[in-house]
Design a binder for these strands. Structure first.
Length: 507
RNA sequence: GGGCCGCUAGCUCAAUUGGCAGAGCAGGGGCCUUUUAAGCCCUUGGUUACAGGUUCGAGUCCUGUGCGGCUCACCA
């Protein structure tokens, strides 16, 4: 253990003093008759019949973290906090005992986890309070929590000297959570969002499944993977970058509606909206196309917003977002034409498009395909300006190798992405189910039949084999769950909605 | 990976042109039987992220390193 600070040294001597008098600072067993919230509720019910609230005989044993102490000689007030609430303790020398009160003042610190037994009453100022007759240490806190001060003022909790250094908060998320209720609330909302997503999909007869995280051949997205190795099998493996190819194998197997919520890993840059591991929702729906998926998507997100926030109108970074279906559907080509004043339909080759982009002041990277040029135009000119939920529809074929082309244009695929609040949220398409077309698309992407020579991305022959057995036409969908959490909890950074975001190692 | 900005006590922050490193809270010693950012008196606490350099003198200026924030690039 590293060198203790002065404060930690003091706390250690308090701990030793407790041990010396036979009081364990870390006892095995705990008593607890009520959560704080249920004790307060029981008290309110007990006095609702006119019982004198200053003199009840309602007993409770409560547990929680000591969050504030005010001592005044033969009397002290304190607050303890458990997950559901906070309550004041009244510690009187004539109830608790003079010696025990002195021990409390000497040996208990902010941050200690304690147990308090007593009867409930209301103080002169009207606060529900436990008149404490016995105190027990449950876990002595050695290191001081960040010294935020909180106070209820006219119903609103004001925080002073908040622990708000982002790096310190992420590195010591436990301290952040212990001290910042607002942060705990984000992760409760996150849990509700996941529950609502599952509820919605389960109610629509989707089957939740789990597919491999460790994959011999990665695919389903364009990202670079993390790689690892199985020692006994002498096999190189990748952490998945998407679930797509496994989930569609399940449609071949006869499941018609499947979904998975889990972790994807992408070895790419870290940013406000990218964490190396993130939570993805994907579903695949047999006998549906991307129009059906759009309808389900807007219903699903509106349902989750309603369940989690109570409304389909959500404030994100000062903007009102309206999740109420139907959402606007705009073609990619129209949006790009509108915002960049380049109508790429008039430039059928990559060279021609790159030229007009340069004329308009863009800097297209050399050797990009036409689809990549269109995509870069979109992200530069359009993406951050889409505030209200918007389906961006119909993408270039060469950047969408798993999507079926439209019936009228072989260079365009039936694909949509959802943007809102300036964020990309979803990606979906009418899935390609023609094994010959799929093989050709893989080959065009540079997938190789043999990977023995080295770095080429191998052809996923097993996936093609599956498709040759017959894959029902289907619509597929992917959504970044962390980003949905950002939108519904009004957070600008993905790190605020991931409990332990990835940070560079210290030292 | 590039650019810009930041890093001062356990936490939140000051420190004039380069001139004695400070405050509030937390901590320690006291007083106090209805407080709630309790109050009052006294008080401890610093390798100013790290390593160099310039200077009589560096938290402040210069160089490098680390970590972070923002941003750009990358990212079907």
């Amino acid at each position: 253990m590293r060198t203790l600070t002065e404060i930690e040294q003091y706390r250690l001597t308090k701990l030793e003093r407790m041990r010396d008098r036979g009081e364990s600072p870390y006892p095995h067993r705990v008593q607890r008759t009520h959560s704080i919230a249920s004790a307060v509720q029981a008290f309110d019910e007990a006095v609702s019949d006119g019982t004198d609230p200053h003199e009840t005989d309602l007993k409770a044993i409560l547990c929680g973290r000591l969050r504030s102490v005010r001592t005044m000689g033969k009397l002290a007030f304190a607050h303890i906090e458990d997950e559901g609430g906070r309550i004041q303790l009244l510690l009187r020398a004539d109830v608790l005992g003079v010696d025990r009160l002195k021990q409390f003042e000497d040996d208990f610190d902010l941050g200690d986890i304690i147990q308090a037994e007593g009867t409930l009453l209301r103080t002169r100022t009207g606060e529900t309070t436990l008149n404490t007759s016995a105190l027990r240490m449950l876990a002595k806190s050695i290191s001081p929590l960040p010294a935020a001060k909180e106070v209820d003022e006219e119903g609103e909790r004001k925080t002073y000297s908040a622990f708000d250094n982002a790096e310190a908060r992420y590195r010591e998320r436990y301290a952040d959570l212990a001290v910042n209720e607002r942060v705990r609330e984000i992760f409760r909302a996150r849990a509700r969002i996941l529950r609502a997503l599952r509820m919605f999909l389960d109610n629509h007869d989707f089957l939740e499944v789990e597919t491999p995280v460790l994959q011999p051949i990665y695919g389903g997205a364009a990202a670079k993977p993390f790689s690892t190795h199985h020692n006994q099998l002498h096999q190189d493996l990748f952490l998945r970058i998407s679930f797509e190819l496994y989930l569609k194998r399940l449609l071949v197997g006869g499941f018609e509606k499947v979904y998975e919520i889990g972790r994807d890993f992408r070895n790419e840059g870290v940013s406000l909206t990218h964490n190396p591991e993130f939570t993805q929702l994907e579903f695949y729906w047999a006998y549906a196309d991307y129009h059906d998926v759009m309808c389900l998507t807007e219903q699903m997100v509106a349902y989750v917003a309603e369940q989690v926030t109570g409304s389909t109108m959500v404030t994100y970074q000062g903007q009102q977002l309206d999740f109420n279906p139907p959402w606007e559907r705009c073609s990619l080509s129209d949006l790009v034409a509108e915002y960049s004043s380049i109508d790429y339909r008039k430039f059928p080759t990559a060279e021609g498009l790159a030229m007009v982009m340069r004329e308009k002041g863009h800097d297209p990277s050399m050797g990009s395909t036409r689809g990549k040029l269109i995509e870069s135009l979109f992200s530069a000119c359009v993406e951050s300006r889409l505030m209200q939920p918007t389906f961006v529809v119909d993408y270039p074929r060469d950047i969408s190798p798993l999507a079926k082309t439209t019936e009228k244009d072989p260079e365009t695929v039936e694909r949509f992405e959802v943007f809102m609040g300036g964020l990309e949220l979803c990606n979906a398409f009418t899935e390609l189910n023609d094994p010959f077309d799929q093989e050709e698309r893989f080959a065009q992407m540079g997938r190789e039949y043999s990977n023995e020579s080295g770095d080429g991305h191998p052809m996923d022959l097993d996936y093609l084999r599956a498709m040759r057995y017959g894959m029902p036409p289907n619509g597929g969908f992917g959504m970044g769950v962390d980003r949905l959490v950002m939108l519904l909890t009004d957070q600008r950074s993905i790190r605020e909605v991931i409990l332990f975001p990835h940070l560079r190692a210290k030292q």
